[in-house]
């Protein structure tokens, strides 16, 4: 027996959901969705759960992550209830629910708070620069160190507990029994989703979107690898240097197109951008661009006279690592991969 909770709609609207109340359950969205199957059908069911405010059922569901938002359901909806956007909002809400710190939820719901966090980190970086007397070498050394430490600690402090929470909500609490062997045998699904997003290929959307996303993921991960482990900014190897250029260029070129589509709002999936979406694409763009420029200035030997560039790059890096990665949209990279993994576990 579940209690109807109409207040959930108000809560979810803070995560960007729009007019889903207009839904009259015709099911066109589910029918048109190329990812929805007989065993796992959406988005109509999720809309109904949302309308009735069945929080526990939503928390236990992996379906929001199974959607790759091609936007077809929203274009086909006879009542303009925007099912695609609802699924997006549910992903934001779920992200907030998985996050044990609660900071994700606060930032999704409050733009001023997010801006404050960005300003605070910027001030912090400036303070550090003053403290370091604007010694470029020292700053770059700390910057390099910061990257490695941030990745490790966020992984341990934020992501591991959050993934455990997600596992608890979706597997343990609904009472799914999974033999240990299956945990191992299903691992493949996790990596395929993380790196290739194979499932997105089934979206009715054109293949170009998948390709863009794919090279962006590859570019981003490679850039991370080049900077952290191969120390791109100080490397002497030409091959590593060129690889870093290429990867950072991919990141900022692809994100230019992403920002552009969100501004033009031509497709359903670009119509309802939330602050978290903007922060994600713009900061990714800045990351790529400032990294590219920094290395360029190093090669041209003019970084010493343009320290501001590195401070800018460092600021973007800090904000990315401390705000967007643990509490912002970056997490979808992780949760979606785990969702597919968990879905595989749930399969009979």
């Amino acid at each position: 027996m579940s209690r109807v909770n109409p207040k959930f709609a108000t809560e979810l609207s803070k995560y960007g959901s729009s007019d889903f109340n207009a839904c009259f359950n015709c099911g066109n969205c589910t029918a048109t969705c190329s990812l929805s199957t007989a065993d796992s059908s959406f988005p109509r069911e999720m809309i109904r759960y949302t309308t009735l405010g069945l929080e526990d059922d939503i928390k236990a569901s992996l379906k929001p992550w199974e959607c790759y938002y091609c936007g077809e359901c929203s274009s086909e909806c006879p009542r303009q209830a925007e099912p695609g956007e609802l699924m997006m909002s549910l992903r934001r809400w779920l992200t907030a629910k998985y996050d044990w710190t609660g900071l994700s939820g606060l930032m999704y719901k409050s733009l001023p708070l997010s801006i404050a966090a960005f300003v605070l980190t910027f001030v912090g970086v400036l303070a550090f620069a003053f403290n370091a007397d604007f010694d470029l070498e020292h700053m770059m050394h700390v910057g390099h160190l910061f990257e490695a430490i941030a990745i490790a600690s966020i992984m341990v402090v934020i992501f591991v507990p959050n993934i455990i929470r997600m596992w608890y909500f979706t597997i343990v609490k609904p009472g799914t029994k999974v033999p240990f062997k299956k945990y191992v045998s299903s691992m493949g699904e996790f990596f395929v989703t993380m790196f290739v997003q194979k499932r997105a290929l089934d979206c009715d959307d054109n293949r170009f979107r998948w390709f863009e996303h794919f090279i962006l993921v590859i570019g981003y991960l490679s850039l991370l690898f080049t900077t952290v482990f191969m120390d791109w900014f100080s490397t002497q190897y030409l091959a590593v240097n060129i690889f870093g250029y290429v990867m950072s260029a991919i990141v900022f070129i692809v994100t230019v197109d992403f920002v552009n589509s969100r501004m033009k709002k031509k497709k359903a999936l670009n119509k309802h951008s939330q602050p978290s979406d903007w922060f994600f694409v713009i900061w990714l763009f800045l990351m790529g661009l400032t990294a590219f420029m920094t290395r360029l200035f190093i090669d041209l030997n003019i970084l010493e006279t343009n320290k501001w560039l590195y401070i800018l790059h460092f600021t973007v890096l800090v904000q990315w690592a401390l705000i967007i990665v643990p509490f912002g949209k970056w997490t979808h990279f992780l949760y979606r991969s785990f969702a597919m993994y968990f879905a595989k576990l749930k399969e009979k």
Binding site: M1, S2, R3, V4, N25, E45, L52, L54
Partner: peptide, 8 residues
Amino acid sequence: LTAKKEME
């Protein structure tokens, strides 16, 4: 519409 879930 939720496959006859019992609702209160």
